[in-house]
Design a protein around this nucleic acid. Sequence first.
DNA 1: CGAGGTATTGAGGGGGCTCAATATTTGTGG
DNA 2: CCACAAATATTGAGCCCCCTCAATACCTCG
Lengths: 226, 226
Amino acid sequence: MDKLDRNSLEAPIIFTAALVDGMGASVCIKHLKAGETLYVEGEDADYCYEIMSGAMKEYNTLEDGKRQVAEFYKAGDMFGFSESSDQLHTAEAITSCAVRCYPRDAFMKTVAASPALSASFLDTLMTRLHRARERMVMIGRMSAMQRVATFLLRLADDADNQHTTHLAMSRQDIADHLGLTIETVCRTLTELKKQQIIVMEAARVFSIADLPRLEAVAMGARGRLH
Amino acid sequence: MDKLDRNSLEAPIIFTAALVDGMGASVCIKHLKAGETLYVEGEDADYCYEIMSGAMKEYNTLEDGKRQVAEFYKAGDMFGFSESSDQLHTAEAITSCAVRCYPRDAFMKTVAASPALSASFLDTLMTRLHRARERMVMIGRMSAMQRVATFLLRLADDADNQHTTHLAMSRQDIADHLGLTIETVCRTLTELKKQQIIVMEAARVFSIADLPRLEAVAMGARGRLH
DNA sequence: CGAGGTATTGAGGGGGCTCAATATTTGTGG
DNA sequence: CCACAAATATTGAGCCCCCTCAATACCTCG
């Protein structure tokens, strides 16, 4: 497999406009503070959601308390369409958020009624499936160094503001996303700093100082700690 | 997250019948021997496929030769609907197979034209997304013992013939599916045999001797080698 | 400025990988 | 049907990456 692609997963604009048009009054907006949950695994999946501002994460918790963060979502992303009538994940605000809520039945009906919306929706689902599989490869087959490098590359690419990139999520969130521990994430970042591949302006602000080398590391070159 | 569900992923019967009806002549059947590829990562994704008999695997290969098996497919399963115009995985026959091939454009059009088909298709996609995320949890957060136990449980459940279950895939395939090495898979199976939790009638035929303990192991009880 | 959360660094141990040898099964041709 | 080769599976020894446990630094907000 050539390098993991880093295309954006943003819901097309058509999505929002057509949905709000079609569903009107039944759509509402919810505001969340950092740390609040939008829904919890197991509860009824009555709504689909679209992030208007802020960042969220969707995760599962195992019996022993370990977490796996399935996805991070940012403004423009849609989520919460569970295939069952229950939520299969927990969604939690990372920063304070504004979220548009679509009643699930009406949402599905509106999507089904419009070929364009259906196509967009399918695209989103398939892209997300693809991403999930990419991350399976990452978690199952890559070293800690490769995982962190790949993660930083994707973040920088998603944000594509010229220089610095902000990390909305904590080290713990990153660890839970990459299948690592928080300590390993820290050590790996430190190593990337030492090698002057990245610069950390603050704990949650970084910039890529040497893109080719970061990409090389992500591909497996010198891809270990120590 | 409570225990990973093990519901079948078979395409509903409605799928096949309606599709063949709607597309008629453009559908063709292809026969593959074990080891032959149906498509290779990067080539044009012109068709969607449905397995009529046999078993297949869909995987990615990394630069260093490591593989990640995304899914195993068996009779009744549909696959190959890539979100891009290129295939993102390689699909290879595990046993000799008969595969029904649907031209991709016509397939999508037929699905879009039928609400029932659309719903089935969405279900399939979302179930698969859910499975991919389950496996992310498994690979990222579970011990080798837990992964193998979970895998055996799912296989036995999918096959649900009373007693013994046949493994179509090799140890290498299992390892590549679970994010382990072939040696670890072997050792883990040996340990499960020693503890009389499973019985191996042959290298590729097993039966579960103690379901509650296997489930307990999958959940994390005594979930380590040694 | 203190308190609590978040992040970093260190020391040590273990689970699973690597390398290697052997056993078993499968496939092929005589 | 057997013999041989090739592929697949199993077992062993040793090591290393990452986890665990623990201490310290930093950052944010009352």
